[in-house]
Amino acid sequence: MFEALTSVRTAEQRMERSSNFELFAWLFMRVSGIILLVIALGHLFYMHFVVGVTNIDFALIAERWENPFWRIYDTFLLFFAFTHGTNGMRYIIDDYFRGGVRVTLKLLLYLLYFALMVMGTYVIVTFRV
């Protein structure tokens, strides 16, 4: 039982040593963070103080997506925000969980990431009234 745990940990550590993935993830958090500073805060303020949250309904979003600019904007926002968030959750899982729990939680996280990325991209790209 303990051998299994140790070997998982060594495999993880071996992988960490042999690839630049963690360095890339670190850089991605900084770069996407700076991008999100503009597009996520822009979205928050625009929707709250220009559009008005209580005005948001099906018709308003359908009209918004008539304009390809907003479809592209929303696709970028979806990708950068949810990828940044998912990687952050991965850090937190790594910090507080070990062994099988860690593996299970990460698997669930990646499933959620995949499902919501597909659902979000699908509706933004293919939506027709």
């Binding site: 099906f58 979003i61 359908a62 979806l78 949810f82 919501l116 659902m119 979000g120 699908y122 509706v123 933004i124 939506f127």
Partner: peptide, 9 residues
């Protein structure tokens, strides 16, 4: 929020 916007479909 991603889920609720998906409900547009």
């Amino acid at each position: 929020h991603i889920f609720d916007i998906f409900l547009m479909v």
